[in-house]
Each structure stands twice: as C-alpha cells, then as structure tokens.
Design a protein around this nucleic acid. Sequence first.
DNA 1: GTAATACTTAAGCAAGTACTTAACAATAAG
DNA 2: CTTATTGTTAAGTACTTGCTTAAGTATTAC
Lengths: 110, 110
Amino acid sequence: MSSQKVKIDRVFHALGDPTRRAIIEKLSQGPISVSRLATPLDMSLAAVVQHLQVLEECGLVRTEKLGRVRTCGIDPAGLSVAEKWIGERRSIWERRLDRLGDLLGESAEK
Amino acid sequence: MSSQKVKIDRVFHALGDPTRRAIIEKLSQGPISVSRLATPLDMSLAAVVQHLQVLEECGLVRTEKLGRVRTCGIDPAGLSVAEKWIGERRSIWERRLDRLGDLLGESAEK
DNA sequence: GTAATACTTAAGCAAGTACTTAACAATAAG
DNA sequence: CTTATTGTTAAGTACTTGCTTAAGTATTAC
C-alpha cells in the first residue's frame, strides 16, 4: 500500500526525464544492449547506466546479463502503474462531470 | 512538435511529486480554493502555490481568480498528454510481441 | 476608516539530480 | 598471455527542486 505509493512516485519521476523516455521508446522496438542504447544518446556510457538503474528500480525496464553484455527490455509493470493512476483520476472526474450535467459554475462545496 | 515534447517533460515531472499528485486527486473530486487545498497539506501556503504554478504551466490544472479567491480545477489536457504517450509505447511493444509469436530468445537485431 | 482574509512574490537554503571523469572488473578475441 | 570490448563503480560538480520565512498586494468584513 505504502510501497505502492513509493513506486508510483518513482515511475513518474523516471518518466519525467527525456533521456529515460528516449530509452523506453527505443526499448519498445525490442531488446538491445547497454552500449547500443548509449551510442545515439549524446552522453557517457556511465550516465546511461545510471538512467537504466533508475528505470529498472521502478519496474519500467528489465535487464539480463549474459557474458559481458547486458541486454535491456521493456518491463510492462511500470507503465501499467502509471497508466492505472491516470485512468483512475480520469474516471473520477469524468463521473463527476456526468453527475453535474449542464449545471455549471459551482465552485467549492459548502 | 518540439513544444509538445517539452510539455510531456513537464507533465511527467509534475506527476512525479506526491504533493502534486495529492492536489490532483483532491481536484478530481471538484474545484476548490487555494487555501482550502493547502489546509490538509502539511506545508506553507506559499509552497502549495508553487506546486499549483507547476501544475498550471503543464496543463494539469486550471485556475481562475474571482475577488480574492483563486479557484482551482482539473485541466483534462495534461493527463491526456501523459496517457497518450504511455498508450503509444504500450501499443508499439504489444504489436512487436504479437509479430514475434512464440519465437522467443531474440536479443538485439543485426 | 481599520482589521482580517486570501493569496502573491522574493530570497535563501538543504537536499536531490544528471551529468562528468577516472579507475576498475569481467569476458571475449587475436 | 595480451588486448580490446562491455560494462560497473566511485567521487566530484553544476544545476534544479521543494521547501522555508518574510514582506507585500488586493479584496472583503466590521
């Protein structure tokens, strides 16, 4: 429950960085090694590894090491957490707007 | 196009903070004034105003001032941007997994 | 008018973030 | 064995963030 909240925190924070979203976009097309991920990403390999750690910790990316190569891929879990939170908020205020009907202009209750 | 990317950046960054998500959760139930938003939020009013600025800049919240009271409410635009990005990624890797069928174990192309 | 309410704005600060370089480890190739 | 490849880890640094307090403005109440 509380650990779930922490996870949402980390997932959204992870998605807030353009480099990390670029990594996820690349991985959406299929698994790939760390160095190959890093090549087009105007920064050091160490920086990319740090981003991957963030992505892996919050369940957005999975990695596996075979020999000296670490292969990275999408982990569906992370995106689901984010998608779920957004969807829940949306359904709540959509339901509220439905109840309101054409009754507009109400500000704060009480 | 580029401005859209900046917006996604800001939206996810905004959602990464638990206080800001709490604000959105509260606003999902209906519009409310700044001071009323702030009351349960163990921090100064000034801090809440700063969070609201972040939320408004990225299209997650809308506000309107009448007299000395600023009323805040959900702006659907921001959440849609985030939801859309997540949905697009998901559909891309789901399509890819479909194409793969039961052909497993492929790592990087080439 | 004076006082209370509801913000607003600015300055400052401790903690966190996103990098860097550099030194290291493990595996594969020649 | 020697060398190149692929990654890992640590330390340092400029910048950003999330607050704070304090002083100010605008509106409403008395």
